[in-house]
């Protein structure tokens, strides 16, 4: 009994939040949607909608903090139990503790060289590591393309390789390859954009469907309490 009451309360809260937010967004663009006596509700609904968005943003920010704390605790436990890869966990925990400690000391003006340390960590560690990881993608792609027709040589594989060579070739600043540029531009402007737009449309439709399911209380997360 109590459980279904809380389930109903959660559903009611979710639906109210969704409807108020949606109404606020719609009224912002089309203020004439509410006529007559209902028009007096417009500022209130818009204010509620803005407040809910703020609450959402704050919740996300807090969840990030919780996520970071949880991550640190997990790696701290792994380090303590000496599980596989505990060395990495220890380095991660130590790095995070160092950054947090340095930032705290810098904010409290207890560290005169805080800025240099922060820059060092940011530029020489964080960005370098992330950029390197992104760069590794190139090697994977080139190796994949190198072996793309190793198993079977067919028309689609050949088309793929030709397209890759065309796009890459047109990216080079060589006058000899200039004739490739219009073809590359056409490829990017028509087929690539068409595909990208198709994907975007699919995502948009799926988003609408999910939104509609939430609004009518049919989303799985809202029904979970009743299904069990």
């Amino acid at each position: 009994m109590m459980r279904s009451f809380f389930t109903m309360l959660a559903v009611l809260l979710a639906l109210t939040t969704a409807l108020v937010t949606l109404a606020g967004l719609l009224l912002e663009r089309q203020p004439v949607l509410l006529a007559g006596a209902l028009a007096t509700w417009e500022p209130l609904i818009r204010e509620w909608s803005a407040t809910l968005l703020q609450v959402f943003s704050i919740s996300v920010a807090v969840s990030i903090i919780i996520g970071i704390l949880n991550l640190l605790l997990v790696h701290l436990r792994r380090s303590g139990r000496r599980e596989t890869g505990c060395g990495y966990s220890f380095v991660l925990f130590l790095s995070a503790a160092t950054v947090i400690g340095l930032t705290y000391l810098e904010r409290e003006n207890l560290l005169t060289t805080g800025a240099e340390w922060r820059v060092l960590l940011l530029e020489q560690v964080q960005v370098t590591v992330e950029s390197s990881l992104a760069g590794l993608l190139l090697f994977g792609l080139v190796y994949g393309a190198w072996r793309v027709m190793a198993l079977r040589v067919n028309g689609w594989g050949s088309l793929f390789v030709l397209t890759v060579l065309l796009v890459l070739g047109a990216a080079l600043p060589l006058p000899e390859l200039a004739p490739l540029v219009p073809l590359r531009d056409w490829l990017l402007a028509v087929p690539v954009n068409a595909g990208a737009r198709g994907i975007l449309l699919g995502i948009a439709l799926a988003t609408i469907v999910v939104g509609a399911r939430v609004l009518i209380g049919q989303d799985r997360s809202l029904r979970s309490g009743r299904d069990e």
Binding site: M149, V153, L165, G169
Partner: peptide
């Protein structure tokens, strides 16, 4: 980047030709 792209072109082309030859 230019050199990387040029080398990628060469590698991919050689790979494709090699694989076609093997097939």
């Amino acid at each position: 980047i230019h050199i990387g792209v040029a080398l990628s072109i060469v590698i991919i082309a050689l790979g494709a030709l090699g694989n076609m030859g093997s097939a």
